[in-house]
Each structure stands twice: as structure tokens, then as C-alpha cells.
Design a protein around this nucleic acid. Structure first.
Length: 304
DNA sequence: AATAAGGATCGAA
DNA sequence: TTCGATCCTTATT
């Protein structure tokens, strides 16, 4: 398919970040050191953070337990599909010094990915932000920035991303990040990249993130997937009939077409034209009509 | 009238 | 060249 340079760059940046993260085990250390972390806003009190909302729990916190370090948690807790991340399988570590066995490398990457994803999860709970950066509000973007700055000892850059919601942030390229905050922009971009890819582990196999990058214009099938993955917002106009098989139904063709037109800045878009584009996918093997078909019902083709 | 399928043409990247 | 966007004809429901 498309050979996106930005994609490869992003993946590489991810990998190197995973490794650096792996080497600095206690990424939550700065929080653990904060004694009054359970007091809402205490940890971030020095940040003048208006939206600081740290969930206080009477029970033990998962990341506090991590302090005892996971007893060699076997990868059995994660299904094999989680390890089938294409970027993890395809890209060797350029930073890896010395000859390392490939299967060993895979194991390391697996552990690193699991570790990072756990941290992302706990960060979500702690910051009260959704896992998908596309869903972030302006305030949540600021939360994430402050969090990342603290966690990785980056200089304060949040002011450079004022007034930006998650979608805005995701549409920035790596160059944009570097332009805004020089040498740390790339790091920040890579961290965002990790969050952006986090969602894939819960998705069906045909929901490939590899084309989920903002650099190139979004494609129709990606857009449809986006809507489908946000049922809270769009289930009234498009929804799954069978998520496992990738079968979905457009409930409000005019509305979906309007959304597509807005996204592509094509005010004259309608379902007639949108559906023509969908039909183009038949030949490409991206979308098809399911066996038990019907009006406004389509199916994502599961890639081999 | 709304949808489905697909040909033809054109433009942007 | 690819990925639609636009327009159009024919057929189905």
C-alpha cells in the first residue's frame, strides 16, 4: 500500500522511545515521589493547572503497586494479537548495540510495548483523559502536555499549543512540532505517536492504524472507521452491525456524507458521490458488500 | 425517490 | 499513479 515516510519515521521514533522508556523503568517516579498525590491538584499545584483533577481512590492504585515491580509478568496476559503490531515486527532497533537475536528482540519489544501501554492506561485514569488523542479537548491537550513534560523532564511547552484540541494536535506533523519547540518537538511528537497508536490493541485486525496518520489526507475508509469507533458521537448516523466481521450500516446517509464533505472541505458532497467512492473500494479489496447484504450496508475486508 | 453498480472525466498530490 | 469528486446511465426496491 502507501509508503508513507512520515509513517516510518513515526514508527521508528516510537520504537526508540519504547526502548528509552524501558530503560527508565519508573516513569511514574515523579508522581510516586509526590507524597500528597492523592490530594486532587496537589501534584500539579505548582503548575497553576486549573483543570487538575486527579481521581482520588480509597483503594490501592495500580501504578503504586507497580512500585514493587511486576514479578516477571509473563506475556500470557496478552493475547497473541496484541503482539502482532506490524511496526513491532518489521522494524529492527537501530539503536540496539551489538548483535541481538531476533526473537529475543521481539520479546523485549513485547515487554516494552506492554509496559508503555500500561503507563498510558494509568495516565489516562490519573489525568481523566480519553486514551485517543483525537478525543481530547483543549484542556485535555494541556493536561497531556504537562504530564509528558514532567514525566520526561521536557521544558515547558504547553503554552505553544494553546487553543488546540486533540484533533488539531494530531494533525500537526513532526516538523510542526519541531518548529514549535525545537529539539524537544520530535520527542513530543513521538510520545503523541505512542498514544495515537494505543487504540489499535483493542481493535479488530482489519482496523489497521498504519494509515492513521495526519500527514497525508484522510481516506474515506479511514474516515468511516473513525466515525464507527466513536459510537457515542456517531452511532445515530453510522454503526456496526457486526464489529468482528467489520460489517457496518449507514443509518443516515445524508449526515455521513455531510460529515465527509466537511472533513474534505467539499460542501457539495452527498451520498451519491460518497457511495461511488465506497464502490471504488470493491475492486481494491478494502470494502465490499457483505454476503447478507442490504441497503446502506457495507463490510470492511479483513486483510490477510 | 432512494439506493446500487459502474463508466467516464477531471484535478490534486 | 492514486484517491477521490463529479456526472451520468441503468437497474432495483
Amino acid at each position: 500500500m502507501g509508503s508513507a515516510d512520515g509513517e516510518r519515521v513515526g514508527r521508528t521514533a516510537q520504537t526508540s522511545l519504547y526502548v528509552s522508556h524501558f530503560h527508565s523503568r519508573s516513569s511514574m517516579a515523579w508522581l510516586e515521589e509526590a507524597e500528597d498525590w492523592k490530594t486532587p491538584g496537589a501534584v500539579f499545584s505548582d503548575l497553576n493547572w486549573p483543570g487538575a483533577c486527579i481521581p482520588s481512590s480509597d483503594k490501592e492504585n495500580p501504578w503504586v503497586l507497580r512500585k514493587t515491580e511486576q514479578p516477571a509478568s509473563p506475556p500470557s496476559r496478552t493475547p497473541e494479537q496484541r503482539l502482532a503490531a506490524p511496526w513491532a515486527a518489521q522494524h529492527p532497533l537501530p539503536e540496539a548495540e551489538g548483535p541481538v537475536e531476533e526473537h529475543c528482540l521481539e520479546q523485549v519489544q513485547t515487554m516494552v510495548v506492554e509496559e508503555v501501554l500500561r503507563d498510558v492506561n494509568t495516565a489516562c485514569k490519573l489525568l481523566s483523559i480519553p486514551p485517543d488523542p483525537l478525543d481530547w479537548s483543549c484542556v485535555q491537550v494541556q493536561k497531556w502536555l504537562l504530564w509528558t513534560e514532567h514525566q520526561y523532564r521536557l521544558p515547558q511547552t504547553s503554552a505553544l499549543f494553546q487553543e488546540m484540541c486533540g484533533r488539531d494536535l494530531c494533525f500537526l506533523t513532526e516538523a510542526d512540532f519541531k518548529q514549535r519547540c525545537s529539539q524537544f518537538g520530535g520527542t513530543l511528537f513521538a510520545h503523541l505517536d505512542i498514544w495515537r497508536s494505543g487504540g489499535m490493541f483493542d481493535e479488530a485486525p482489519w482496523l489497521d492504524v498504519k494509515s492513521n496518520y495526519p500527514n497525508q489526507p484522510i481516506q474515506l475508509w479511514q474516515f468511516l472507521r473513525e466515525l464507527l469507533l466513536k459510537p457515542h458521537s456517531y452511532s445515530r448516523c453510522i454503526r456496526w452491525l457486526n464489529k468482528d466481521k467489520g460489517i457496518f450500516k449507514i443509518e443516515d446517509s445524508a449526515h455521513v456524507a455531510r460529515l465527509w464533505g466537511i472533513r474534505k472541505n467539499r460542501p457539495a458532497m452527498n451520498y451519491d458521490k460518497l457511495s461511488r467512492s465506497i464502490r471504488q473500494y470493491y475492486k481494491k479489496g478494502i470494502i465490499r458488500k457483505p454476503e447478507v447484504s442490504g441497503r446502506l450496508i457495507y463490510q470492511f475486508v479483513i486483510p490477510v
